[in-house]
């Protein structure tokens, strides 16, 4: 009986503490202790992540474009611990690199113009910004 009296409050305390830790982690509160290279969630209103890793210039340029990744409410079955931001932008980009014209099949603009320009095959061969207008 005494044993149960100790175990029950301890279990409850541990449960609520771990839930709190999870929430703090997901809101980015533990970034400075856990992650060294990038924030676990977007911290600026335009969606940029904190970057401290050394990247090559192309990657820097790519990352300087605000990624249009959004936070998503999960359904009951998928509280994912991993940060999806590390999956989504790359997979999206890979897909659009493979099929650069896919954006045309509806009228919606999917990428920002700078990114679009980078994905168009002709602009990879010549710099359209340098072409003088007649």
């Amino acid at each position: 009986m005494k044993y149960a009296k100790i175990i029950k409050p301890l279990t409850l305390m541990m449960f609520f503490c771990l839930v709190a830790v999870f929430i703090i982690y997901r809101t980015g509160g533990l970034n400075k202790y856990i992650l060294k290279k990038e924030a676990a969630m977007q911290t600026s209103p335009n969606g940029g992540t904190l970057k401290t890793a050394k990247l090559d210039s192309l990657l820097k340029l790519r990352k300087s474009i605000p990624p249009k990744k959004k936070h998503i409410l999960y359904s009951s079955k998928s509280a994912i611990m991993v940060d999806e931001s590390q999956i989504i932008p790359d997979s999206l980009e890979k897909s659009y690199r493979l099929t650069p014209y896919r954006r045309h099949y509806d009228s919606t603009q999917i990428f920002y113009p700078l990114r679009q320009r980078k994905l168009m095959p002709d602009t990879t061969k010549k710099d359209t910004l340098k072409i003088k207008k007649p």
Binding site: V19, F22, I23, Y25, R26, T27, G28, M41, Q42, P45, K70, H71, I72, L73, Y74, S75, S76, K77, S78, A79, I80
Partner: peptide, 21 residues
């Protein structure tokens, strides 16, 4: 609406959804 503003609620809902099962 940018759900970053509700990051704590989003996280809470995620883990609570597992809890109710």
């Amino acid at each position: 609406f940018q759900l970053e503003a509700l990051a704590a609620i989003v996280a809470f809902r995620g883990i609570w959804d597992i809890y109710i099962h």
